[in-house]
Design a protein around this nucleic acid. Sequence first.
DNA 1: ATTAATTTTCAATAAGTTTTGAAAATTCAG
DNA 2: CTGAATTTTCAAAACTTATTGAAAATTAAT
Lengths: 168, 168
Amino acid sequence: MKLAEAKEQFIQNWGVLGSQWGINRTMAQVHALLLVASSPLSTDDIMEQLSVSRGNANMNIRELIDWDLVYKTIVPGDRKEYFRAEKDIWKVATRIMQQRKKRELDPMIKVLNQLSNLEEDKKDPEVVAFTEAIENIRKFAGQADKTMDMLIKAEENWFWGNFLKMFK
Amino acid sequence: MKLAEAKEQFIQNWGVLGSQWGINRTMAQVHALLLVASSPLSTDDIMEQLSVSRGNANMNIRELIDWDLVYKTIVPGDRKEYFRAEKDIWKVATRIMQQRKKRELDPMIKVLNQLSNLEEDKKDPEVVAFTEAIENIRKFAGQADKTMDMLIKAEENWFWGNFLKMFK
DNA sequence: ATTAATTTTCAATAAGTTTTGAAAATTCAG
DNA sequence: CTGAATTTTCAAAACTTATTGAAAATTAAT
């Protein structure tokens, strides 16, 4: 396979994967493009290589910067902004985890906490069944929450940092 | 909070969470409804409680059965089919993992393998940068793949099975 | 301060996904 | 076998989300 074709393939597939995980396809493609770029790219480069509009490119670049997956870079003597991706894939994974945890898991845990205290007859089998089901989900979510925190902070921690080097 | 309101809340929020993860909102809601139901429900129950059409209910029940998250149940003396959810939340998690791994991670690994063998000049810095990026992602995906297999099979394994009881 | 380059915004539109509902197929009791 | 109950299918419609592109805002060089 040729380089250009391989890049194309990677970008397309990363886009599909992203959309299956609730991430805007263009956002995933911009990320993929920057991941395999050998130097920083401008908005115009991205527009051209992905055939997307300026508005679309701009919005998704901002989102990636917000997720800490892409950095702005200055090229001396050029007024345009250039962008490059975080290439340490472990960092990429933990940052995605961090964002999704904050936006999705944390709110769900809040809801589960509210639901675990019903003001109704605690002997009604209906109430018991519900409370048990919620309690189990709540425990599981709590563990997932802790596990993610651990992974996110692992790099700052000697023991886990070293342990996780095995995965890199 | 009252039971009915709490159920409603849980179903709505589980639906939102699902859609953020690329899972059809109704599918997530049907799953939630069955998770907190104290007895198996029929298609008509589901249609009524979620206010969805027969077609929609049917299609999403089938999908949940396909994912091994919901079982068909027979109620003696009734021709209708009844459904109940797998309530062991750890099983739920590993089954979702299993499905998504098979449908998403495995194909991505295939693609990455294909991309890691370019027929081009291996000294060209462009080619080197690309090959390195892909190789890193490939290693990471391989580890994720192994980790998921381990978690999915953990219950069949004495050591991990016991280790993971801590999380339940 | 001017102005040309660049980035951002956002209403309109396009594209994609989900849902409906009625017809077709299937199932099963008698 | 018959036919009523039930489930499945799928084209059309509704809804949701993403994209465009041009106007507005911002930036920075002179």
